[in-house]
Amino acid sequence: MSKFRKKKKGMPAVNTASLPDIVFMLLFFFMVTTTMRETNLVIENPRLPAATEIKKLEDKSLVSTIYVGKSKDANRDGVGFNKIQLNDKISTADQVPAFILSKREKIAEQLIPLMTTSIKADKESNVGTIIDIRLKLRDVNALKINYSTTAGKKN
């Protein structure tokens, strides 16, 4: 009988003292691996057009983004929806090849044909600007492009 009682009494509680450590570790892991967007927009956040036949961009490291839209600072850059932003500043279409080449330097050679250029342009931009960019992209053989859009409703 005494043996029986001993067993019941000796059941220890699971030690949860290290649980916070585990959870904190998870928390820090997520905080560290979350990457922030590294470019900050000089133009106003472009209002993307909507489309239904869209494809997702798979590998972020192979994507270079070109923004087109209205400048936040009209006094410095002028008005209109046709400002091109490369990296962190307003540029012209002539600087697109240099931008693409600088992106290519960081990528392994066999992956270069897989690189995609994502164009995030405002609805009210003009096609002329886009075509200028496209011609420059063709000059440096950056042939895969993606016109960034939002997902529209299918009907």
Binding site: K56, V63, K144, T149, A151
Partner: peptide
Amino acid sequence: TTMNVDSGVSKKLSEK
């Protein structure tokens, strides 16, 4: 944390 997935209309340009 929002994972903003980029998506859009893909096109392949013709070579020069």
